[in-house]
Simulated assay, not measured.
Amino acid sequence: MALTKLNQLYRQVILDHSSHPHHHGDLEHATNRSDLTNPTCGDVLQLQLVIEDQIIKDIRFDGSGCTISQASASMMTDVVIGKTVAESLLLADQFSLLVQGKEVAKLEELGDAALLSGVAQFPARIKCATLSWKALEKALVK
Rank of each mutant, 00 (worst) to 15 (best):
I68V: 13
G63K: 00
P123G: 09
S72C: 08
L27W: 04
S117A: 15
Q8P: 04
E109Y: 12
H24L: 04
Q46V: 10
E103F: 04
A124F: 06
C41V: 08
L6E: 08
D78E: 15
I59Y: 01
G25Y: 06
C66I: 03
M76I: 08
L49F: 10
E137Q: 15
H20K: 14
E109Q: 15
Q121V: 04
Q48C: 02
K5P: 11
V141S: 15
M75Q: 04
N32Y: 02
S72W: 02
A135W: 02
K102W: 06
S74L: 05
T84D: 10
M76T: 09
G82Q: 05
D112T: 08
A73D: 04
S19I: 00
Q54A: 14
E87L: 08
L9D: 09
V85P: 09
L90G: 04
T77V: 04
S117Q: 13
E109L: 15
L49I: 06
Q48S: 15
I59H: 03
Q100I: 03
G25M: 07
K106R: 14
L140C: 09
Q12L: 13
I55E: 12
A113L: 15
E137S: 14
P21R: 00
D112V: 07
S72H: 00
E137K: 15
I51L: 12
N7Y: 03
R11W: 09
K127F: 04
T4R: 07
Y10H: 02
L15K: 00
L136G: 08
L98N: 02
L45I: 14
Q48P: 07
H22M: 12
